[in-house]
Write a protein that binds this DNA or RNA. Structure first.
Length: 141
DNA sequence: GTTGTGACATCGC
DNA sequence: CGCGATGCCACAA
């Protein structure tokens, strides 16, 4: 499994955190969804980017500053991804305090709690907001 | 130099 | 719908 890092990990993480900070309380985004808003760094092929970037987002969350609502990032199945030394219990509790409801299978209904930034907000920051959701070569990292 | 192991998504059964 | 395989890397100890 490709666990490579982005060309400029810090810069990439900053972009990720900027988006996560914008997620409203009580809403969630998936790692992949988040990644697809950020254009592939120069030198990274779009298909490689699709394959690798969700992990990069995860890595960014692992080292996120305290002001980043990391609990609002979950996986594409609507479930909390467990990490070593930090059970899913804490994250679930934080989300429930924000009003997020989990079903019997520990899943969140993404069609209900999923969130996506406004197109204008994304444009201002050089992020992607195309309908086809295809990552493009667009940024200078 | 080796080894272990990561906050994922997608596709085929 | 669930489960397993795939991707084939970087970095700390």
């Amino acid at each position: 499994m490709p666990y490579s890092n982005p060309p400029e990990p810090r810069q990439y993480a900053d972009r990720v955190c900027e988006i996560v900070r914008a997620i409203p309380s009580g809403r969630v985004m998936s790692y992949g969804q988040l990644a697809r808003l950020i254009p592939p760094p120069v030198g990274v092929e779009p298909d490689s980017y699709l394959r690798l970037s969700p992990r990069w987002v995860g890595a960014a969350m692992a080292n996120a500053p305290d002001d980043v609502p990391w609990q609002r990032v979950i996986n594409s199945q609507g479930k909390i991804s467990s990490r070593p030394g930090f059970g899913v219990v804490v994250q679930r509790k934080l989300l429930e305090q924000e009003g997020v409801v989990f079903d019997a299978r520990e899943r969140v209904d993404l069609s209900r709690y999923g969130w996506q930034p406004e197109a204008a907000w994304l444009r201002e920051r050089g992020l992607l907001a195309w309908e086809d959701d295809t990552p493009r070569q667009a940024t200078l990292f």
